[in-house]
């Protein structure tokens, strides 16, 4: 059987480009299940709990898409991907959608032939230091030892930052977040640098969280968002607008709890269109007219997702910051739904 598959494989090599052209929406509908490329485990953003249920900020986006496309937020299979396998898994069709803290960069857009359809979290690289180091700005870190994960864009950002400010540092390379945290706590490095959301999660779980501060400088832009394959624009639109639907819902005050109530009572035409009470916006995407209502009913609006998984009040305790709605001084802005 193995042999036959292999020969079939060789014969089909030339058809590879065809993979991307097949309609992902039809595939997902036929399969009855959304294949969502997830993290192998990242606190607050996506990880399975003791009974194997996935929860997290990125996970909820997948559930919203599943609710919009299939009408059921549980019809989604999470496929853990590592930093190395994630983009290939997407390109080869192993997953329909990648929602695992991937930074939107030009080369990933062009060279890897991927489409970043939205930015669901604006992150940036920060520094954490012990309070008794007496440092209040990253620019005072001259000569510091820095714990840094190898093979990441953070390593390059770090080098750029220190070079620009004409200061020196000594890198202490670590393999993953837990090792970094351990080295930092053991005093092997003066400061630990990674995405600010990761720093906040690490700090929250330290035995002496109050003795550590995250410095105000954010030295890079890390727009994280869901990714789909290049060339299947309809599918990209569905993911993008499911996400925007969650943003609009927050803007309009529609929540998981009151979505039915709003649907019954609203006089706002955009809300009516969004929830499928008027017009045929859902059908234009090839979905059910109530698709976006289903997404909101399944996971709540963007603000709810944020505060449930990573926001203030959770252990991670991240402020909305750049991720506040544009009406509240943030960057989260959805185009009009019409």
């Amino acid at each position: 059987m193995k042999k036959s598959v292999f020969f079939g494989a060789l014969a089909a090599t030339t058809l590879v480009s065809g993979v991307a052209l097949a309609g992902t929406l039809d595939d997902v509908k036929a399969r009855g299940e959304l294949l969502c490329g997830s993290n192998t485990g990242l606190t607050g953003f996506g990880n399975p709990d003791a009974s194997g249920n996935w929860t997290g900020f990125d996970v909820d986006l997948c559930r919203a898409v599943a609710a919009a496309v299939l009408g059921d937020p549980n019809k989604v299979k999470f496929i853990p991907t590592t930093g190395e396998t994630r983009f290939t898994a997407l390109q080869s069709g192993e997953v329909d959608l990648l929602a695992r803290n991937s930074t939107w960069t030009a080369s990933r857009d062009s060279e890897l032939a991927l489409d970043f359809v939205a930015v669901n979290y604006y992150d940036g690289q920060g520094f954490m230091v012990k309070k008794d180091l007496g440092v209040s700005s990253a620019k005072e870190l001259d000569g510091a030892t820095v714990c840094i994960q190898t093979g990441t864009t953070t390593e390059l950002n770090l080098a750029d930052f220190f070079k620009q400010n004409n200061i020196t540092y000594q890198p202490v390379t670590v393999a993953d977040d837990s090792e970094a945290q351990r080295q930092y706590l053991a005093g092997a490095c003066d400061t630990y640098t990674t995405d600010a959301s990761g720093l906040a999660a690490s700090r929250a779980t330290m035995p002496d969280a109050d003795n550590h501060i995250i410095l105000p400088e954010i030295i890079s832009k890390e727009p994280l968002g869901p990714v789909v394959r290049h060339g299947d624009n309809n599918w990209g639109d569905i993911v993008r607008w499911t996400y925007y639907a969650l943003l609009i819902a927050e803007e309009k005050g529609i929540t998981k709890a009151n979505v039915e109530e709003v649907l019954a009572s609203t006089t706002d035409e955009e809300v009516k269109r969004l929830l499928g009470a008027s017009g045929d916006m859902g059908a234009k995407f090839g979905l059910d007219n109530a698709a976006f209502k289903n997404a909101i009913a399944a996971v709540g609006n963007y603000g709810e997702i944020f505060s449930r998984n990573i926001g203030e009040g959770t252990t991670i305790n991240l402020a909305r910051g750049l991720n506040a709605l544009w009406t509240q001084g943030g960057l989260q802005y959805a185009p009009p739904f019409r």
Binding site: N47, T205, P207
Partner: peptide, 11 residues
């Protein structure tokens, strides 16, 4: 990694 990603056991 999965266990460590749980906020309860991180660290």
């Amino acid at each position: 990694q999965i266990v460590r990603a749980d906020i309860a056991w991180k660290g």
